[in-house]
Structures are given as structure tokens and as C-alpha cells.
Design a protein around this nucleic acid. Structure first.
Lengths: 248, 248
DNA sequence: TGTACATCAGTGAACGCGCGTTCACTGATGTAC
DNA sequence: TGTACATCAGTGAACGCGCGTTCACTGATGTAC
């Protein structure tokens, strides 16, 4: 079905080329031919949508906030006309929510990979920090967006991000429970501690990402500081005594 | 000198009123008379400047970011004409820096007051949290601004805020050292821990301020969570063993 | 004390610009037969 | 396979609007004598 359509599209383009050659109208470019013959309409729509999302992220790359982005600016960067935007999102807020969603998926992938890798043999915290640092660098735009709009964005965006962060902390708590790393702690306490850990992670991520790449010395200090902070937290966690009669 | 000037100003205004009465020109309003006779030019300039700063803060009250504020918007809220802005700040960034400065002063006041009050007799952490919560509510606009622009604002603003926060953490570390609450820890370690504490404080502040005032239940949970997180940190701190050969 | 002059916080008109959104449109892709 | 028609992603012109910034100005305040 789709294949047939493609064949016909090609034929039509060939006709257009012939028309062009004889009448000197604008010919389809090579890229145009390539595009048209390779993908369905739905796929192309999806691709434009992704361009919009990517463009928004890239515009924030050097520290600008999402709120300061303009709709026209984003479409310009994505290479489409402003009105095209409305084929994909109702307004900029909806685009932001899509970005939050994407970031949430990314974060969950981090946990899933950690789960599959299992507990590293020794030096758990430093090992995890290095993996996390790599992860943050691999997804710097998403993480920057999330960390930056976490407290700064519109209330709508903020709530969506808070939800994702909470979700992440909960999943982390469940993992800790299953790995039996802190067997003495109740689920509520694990959750509280994971909240603290996640906040510390996000702060550290912002610090990493604000670094210019030519400061290995400062970077090393940040990593060290981050490792030590997590050690303090987990040291506190291992020493934690649950109150005999829990309130909640 | 100034007093004399005032007397003359009053006389001139009286003349103006007489002129008005006889020629039906616009008369100075009561407020105008009041203002003019009460303050010097420098004081009035300072007052307008404060109005600008306050207006900017108030516009951010329901969650908008500083970056999204317009110069005209701020002057409108302050009750002056847009061009007046330039008598006080070069641009919006400079106004933001003034706000950061103000917030820094405010934060230092918090520490000073804590220092004068001394160590509370028992339940140090919960006691401190309650004082801190009150403080955050008393200076909600400044704290909101700082917490919100901390990661979200322009690089310039972000750097200024980071500086203030670091300063605050350092001062806190010195206080802990002087109070001898954690005698086993080196200054570097104290600083690292205070960094963690300050981050946790700012996160908690953002949580407090995002609450609508009719959620006492959620508020209570937030306070509780905050107390527990600080306990974990300080529990970890008391158990901390400095490495035998410190690197830094 | 009064007078003549300087300062400068705040005014108001004007500018060019990019914004978000509307609308009717184009023409490749998709579907029915 | 070909034909006739429907769909709909992307276009391009147009709109009214608020923005930041410039400029020459006003007139109360401040100063010198």
C-alpha cells in the first residue's frame, strides 16, 4: 500500500522534472526527491515535531531559559514556517510538556540500565557517580532543561517536572529495597532519602553542565564534592534508627 | 541647608497654587505637596529605585521567571514611565544583580540572628527548621527569586547567585566550627556538608513557596521530610571519619 | 533673606522590530474504486 | 494498473501589540552668591 504510493510519487516527481526541463520551472532538489520517496507523511510529521523539540533544547544550550524562547524562534531554528508550529503543539507550554515527557523517559532509562548492570563490586558510590556523570553529558540538553526549569519555569511546567522527579525517586527507592542495600529502613524512609539523593544529583548535574569544558581541575573538584556528599548521606542512612512507633 | 530648601519649595508651591487659583491651571495634588515637602531629591530617587526592585519581585510572585519580565512591565508596576528606568539601572540584568545583592544581605541576616540566638537547648534541627520556615515566609519574594533564578536565569545572574550561596555555606561552616558542634571534622569537610545542607534548604524553600496556603497537611509533610533529610545529613556528619591522609 | 543659575529624576512622543495568531492557500501523500 | 478525490503538513501574507531604546523636554530641587 505505502510502497505503491511511493512508486506513484516517484512517477509524479519524474513527470514534474520533465515538465521543469521543458518549461523552466523550479525543479525539486535532490534532497526533496530523497525525502519524498523515503518516508510516509506520518513519518515526516513526526520528524518535524522532533526538529521542533530539538531546536527548543538547542536554543537553551548556552543557558537561556525555556520561558525566554519564542515560538517563531523555535520554528525558525527547526526550519519551518511559524504557522507550522500549530500542526504539532497547541502552544509553547505544550511543547515544554513534551520535553518533560522525553526527559522522564530518558531518566527511566538510566535506572533501567543501572538495574541491569547490577551492583558494582566495590566503591559503589564513586562508580555510580562516574556513570551518572557520563549520562548527564550524554543527555546534557535534556538534563539542562529539566534542572533549569525545575524551579524557574511556569507553574504548569514545574508541576510536570516535579512529578517526573518524584517518580524517579520512588523507583530508586524500590530498587534500593530490592537490592536490600539498606535493609533496616522502612519504605517511607527510603523514599525520603532518595528524594535527598535525587536533589543532590540534580544540583550536581547543573554544576557539571555550567562548566566550560576547559576546566578539568574544577570538574574534578565537583566530582569529588559530589561523591563526598553522597557518602555523607548514605553513611547517615546506614546509621538511621527508625522511630519505634512510626507516625505515618 | 536641606531644611531651608524645603521651606523655599513650600513657598514656591504656594505661589503655584495661587497662580493656579487665579489662572485655572492644573494644581499640585495633595500627594504631590506631601511628597515634595518631605524628602530630598536623593531620597526620592532611592525610593523609586526601591519601587522598581519591589515591582520586579512582585511580578514574579505567582511563579513567573525573572527572564520573562519586561522593562516596561516593571516600570509600569512601579508607577513610572519606561524611560525613567535608565536613571537607576543600565538594563534588566543590572536590576537582577541588585536583587541578588539584596537577597544576599537578607541571607546574612538570617545567619547573624541565628548566631546571636545561640544553640537552642534541644531538638536543634527541628527548631532551626521552624525558624528557617518562618524566615522563608517573611522574605518569600527574595527567596523565590533566588531559588528560581538559581539555575534558570541568565549566566550572569546565575553566577552572582552561586557566589552568594557559596558565601552563605562558608559562613555557616565557620559558625559550626566555632560552636564546636562537629569537632572531628576538618574545615573542608564542614564546607562540603554545609553545601549539601544549603542545597537542601533551598530545595525545601522552593517547595514551601509553591504551596497554596490552604494545604496545611501537605505543608506539614514537607516540614517533616525536610527535618528528616537534615537529620540524615547530620547523622552522617557525626559518623564521618576523615581519611587519614587528606588530599586537599 | 532673596535671586540667578545648575542639576537631574522623571516625562512623553517616536522609532523600528519581532512577537503570537488568523486566514486562505498549495500541493504531495493517501484512499476508493 | 490508472483515475478521481480527500486529507492535511507546511506556506506566506497580514494583523495588532508590546517591546527596548532614542531623544529633546520639564520643572522641582539644589547651590552659589
Amino acid at each position: 500500500m505505502t510502497y505503491r504510493s511511493h512508486k506513484r510519487t516517484v512517477k509524479r516527481l519524474v513527470k514534474r522534472v520533465r515538465r521543469t526541463l521543458s518549461h523552466e520551472q523550479t525543479a525539486p532538489t535532490g534532497a526533496e526527491l530523497f525525502e519524498h520517496t523515503l518516508v510516509t507523511r506520518a513519518e515526516r510529521k513526526q520528524r518535524t515535531r522532533n526538529h521542533l523539540l530539538e531546536s527548543a533544547l538547542r536554543l537553551m544550550e548556552d543557558g537561556r531559559s525555556f520561558t525566554s524562547l519564542g515560538l517563531r524562534e523555535v520554528t525558525r531554528a527547526a526550519g519551518v514556517v511559524p504557522t507550522s508550529f500549530y500542526r504539532h503543539f497547541e502552544d509553547m507550554d505544550q511543547l515544554a510538556l513534551a520535553l518533560v515527557e522525553e526527559t522522564g523517559v530518558t531518566l527511566r532509562r538510566l535506572l533501567r540500565e543501572a538495574r541491569q548492570a547490577g551492583v558494582p563490586p566495590l566503591n559503589i558510590i564513586r562508580h555510580s557517580v562516574m556513570i551518572y556523570k557520563q549520562f548527564v553529558e550524554d543527555h546534557r540538553l535534556h538534563i539542562m532543561f529539566m534542572a533549569g526549569e525545575r524551579w524557574g519555569g511556569s507553574p504548569l511546567i514545574r508541576r510536570a517536572i516535579r512529578y517526573e522527579v518524584q517518580h524517579f525517586a520512588t523507583e530508586m527507592a524500590q530498587d534500593l529495597r530490592e537490592l536490600n542495600l539498606l535493609p533496616a529502613l522502612s519504605m517511607a524512609t527510603l523514599q525520603m532519602i532518595c528524594g535527598l539523593v535525587v536533589n543532590t544529583m540534580l544540583n550536581a548535574a547543573s554544576d557539571f553542565l555550567d562548566l566550560s569544558p576547559d576546566q578539568p581541575r574544577v570538574e574534578q573538584e565537583l566530582v569529588e564534592n559530589f561523591v563526598l556528599q553522597l557518602r555523607v548521606i548514605f553513611l547517615g542512612a546506614t546509621q538511621w534508627k527508625e522511630p519505634s512507633a512510626a507516625k505515618v
